[in-house]
């Protein structure tokens, strides 16, 4: 393997249970419950997951939640808007730290 990320590794996710089966079981139950339709639809949850996947830049999650979003009835337009939301928050998070820069600047300069 000449890369840290191999798409085939996604299928090995469940092997993580070998080190801590009880924790894996709890994670799975919780994970499954999180993505069930509730106050938000399954499609809305998939689109949130897709946006978060981009924010944390997880290739496994991007692969899985692009597929999941399509299978929940989303289209390219909706998925692209979700990615823009993630990007806007990431970009905005950098920019809003400019306030700290200004605070320091104000303190240090005449």
């Amino acid at each position: 393997m000449d890369t840290y990320y191999d798409p085939k590794d996604l299928k090995k996710f469940a092997d993580i249970s070998e080190g801590a089966p009880e924790l894996w079981k709890k994670f799975n139950e919780w994970y499954g419950a999180v993505f069930k339709a509730g106050a938000l639809s399954e499609r809305e949850k998939s689109l949130i997951a897709l946006a978060v996947a981009h924010a944390i830049q997880c290739p496994y999650c991007i692969d899985a939640y692009t597929q999941a979003s399509l299978e929940k009835g989303a289209d390219l337009e909706q998925m692209t808007e979700a990615v823009h939301v993630a990007s806007a928050i990431r970009g905005g998070a950098s920019l809003v730290h400019g306030v700290q820069m200004k605070n320091v600047n104000e303190k240090l300069t005449m």
């Binding site: 339709a37 399954e42 499609r43 399509l70 299978e71 929940k72 009835g73």
Partner: peptide, 17 residues
Amino acid sequence: NPVGAFLPPSQEELERD
């Protein structure tokens, strides 16, 4: 019909949309 290599969504939810 899915427009690609994926399975269809929930019929009930998609019908509402």
